[in-house]
């Protein structure tokens, strides 16, 4: 059974690229357009991995991660931040919020697959 990934980014082009890339690698991918949308989707379906952008309208990545970690179903689900903001400050905040890891944008699609494989196989 293919693993379910929730990919959250407010940029349609990034969303499309991530979606295409991960689907090509055999994952099942669901998109969300911002944190709040992502949270809704996470509530309605259990995902094996959450990939989220940081800077988004309505609810940003950190707030989303915090909200997810409060849900029993997502306490141990890996969450990766895909973000251009990869300052140490951001990483500190990311870790404090409960992120599993981070990946810097721009990234090579193949690298994304590689990282995702490391996390959920």
């Amino acid at each position: 059974m293919s693993k379910n990934i929730l990919a959250i980014d407010d940029s349609a082009s990034i969303r499309q690229m991530v979606n295409f890339t991960l689907k090509s690698a055999g994952y099942h991918v669901v998109d969300a357009v911002d944190g709040r949308d992502g949270l809704e989707r996470a509530k309605s379906q259990q995902f094996d991995l959450v990939l989220t952008d940081q800077n988004m309208p309505r609810m940003d990545g950190l707030a989303l991660i915090r909200a997810l970690r409060e849900m029993p179903a997502y306490q141990r689900t890996p969450i990766l931040m895909l973000t251009t903001e990869s300052s140490d400050e951001m990483k500190l905040q990311g870790r404090a919020a409960g992120a599993t890891g981070w990946m810097v944008k721009p990234f090579d699609p193949l690298k994304l697959i590689e990282v995702v494989r490391k996390v959920i196989g």
């Binding site: 990766l80 890891g101 959920i120």
Partner: peptide
């Protein structure tokens, strides 16, 4: 270009 705060635990895998 990426890193993990916690090693992806074998449990997860």
């Amino acid at each position: 270009v990426y890193g993990f705060f916690t090693e992806p635990s074998p449990a997860v895998e």
